[in-house]
Design a protein around this nucleic acid. Structure first.
Lengths: 194, 194
DNA sequence: GACAAAAACGAACGGTCGTACTATTCATGT
DNA sequence: ACATGAATAGTACGACCGTTCGTTTTTGTC
């Protein structure tokens, strides 16, 4: 990895953290450059436009997510254990993001702004839903979950619990946000079991 | 209502629609003025700062929400019918917002930005959760719902279904987004019934 | 250590940002 | 109809926006 890719990575790393607070549109080339102690034009040269930067920020974050959530979860035994690992690693990811999850932030920022960034995010989130569904299906295969379980519905329900957790923790600061999410998760599992 | 309040209302009405797309921070005095065919300074004079505009936009939208969702729902008979009315009017509100629900958009935009706007939004959403919980409690009172129902958990679960619907409809454009939300809602009701 | 390529820089562009002033037009009560 | 205050417009401000261009510094290779 040459010097170029090295600083590009550093920029994306910093920018993806910053975007959690100010949003993808709120990112500014000048501010990023200042905070990273480089020149505006030097930073800009790594991307050819701001929108390209935004897309690459999303891709960078997605790579992280795969590495830190999906891949470790797949090491858990198939079935309920893997579903639990997936959810647990997901909310651990949430809590590790000091300024919120960039995907959750981007979901509402981009949902009405057509463009490359929106397309990239939508594709990522559809993939993520598919992963949840596939992992859920291993629970059906092991017999832990009902044979007639609607795995798609399960995946959507699981996602909605995570979304709500993000809201209750970050904006509302409810003291019982985490146990509430746990309760919802256990209820979901109870309904899925054989 | 004098001329001043009249145009102020018009500005807030337009701005609250615009904010669904560009966000509260993305609102710009100059652009708003241009689109409303008035001068930047003339528009600005109605608010003393951009952040005051943002707070008033949220308050304006909240008044609308009370008028179009909460008040009509309270006219439904106590109990499950009222819960159904609340949820139905809520998602009808969603679908009426051509560019997304401003509250959903603001939730993730403001969750890491301390300030008046964030405080106002958090307060609104806590109140809204309380309304859902209170309405749910009427279902316990009528005996339609279990006496030991956790109304708080019910309110959070209901909210999470709505959040997920917003995501699946607006960003992911899933064709079965609405029936999926309906299914989740019916499952929630089934678990609550006596 | 020379040399080409890659990377970072500095300055400048036209524009827009929020905000502050002053001036002008309008609406309203009498 | 007129006076008065409210409402709107005009102008300017310093700062920052994304982007371009030409130059300088750094890097990697023989």
């Amino acid at each position: 990895m040459g010097k170029g890719d090295q600083t590009r990575e550093a920029v994306l790393e910093f920018a993806s953290a910053r975007a959690c607070t100010v949003g993808l549109e709120g990112l500014s080339i000048g501010t990023l450059a200042k905070e990273l102690h480089m020149s505006k034009s030097g930073l800009f040269a790594h991307f050819q436009s701001k929108s390209a930067l935004q897309v690459q920020v999303l891709e960078h974050a997605s790579d992280r997510f795969v590495e830190e959530v999906i891949r470790p979860a797949l090491r858990a035994p198939r079935g309920e254990a893997r579903v639990r690992a997936l959810f647990g690693l997901w909310i651990a990811w949430f809590h590790r993001q000091e300024h919120g999850c960039i995907f959750v932030a981007a979901i509402t920022e981009l949902d009405d702004r057509p463009g490359d960034a929106r397309d990239a995010l939508a594709s990522q989130q559809r993939d993520w839903l598919d992963v949840i569904e596939t992992v859920t299906a291993t629970g059906v295969a092991t017999g832990e979950f009902r044979a007639d379980l609607d795995t798609r519905q399960f995946a959507l329900d699981l996602y909605s619990i995570a979304l709500m957790l993000h809201l209750t923790v970050r904006l509302l600061a409810l003291p019982d946000a985490i146990p509430r999410a746990d309760t919802a998760f256990e209820n979901l599992l109870n309904g899925a079991r054989a």
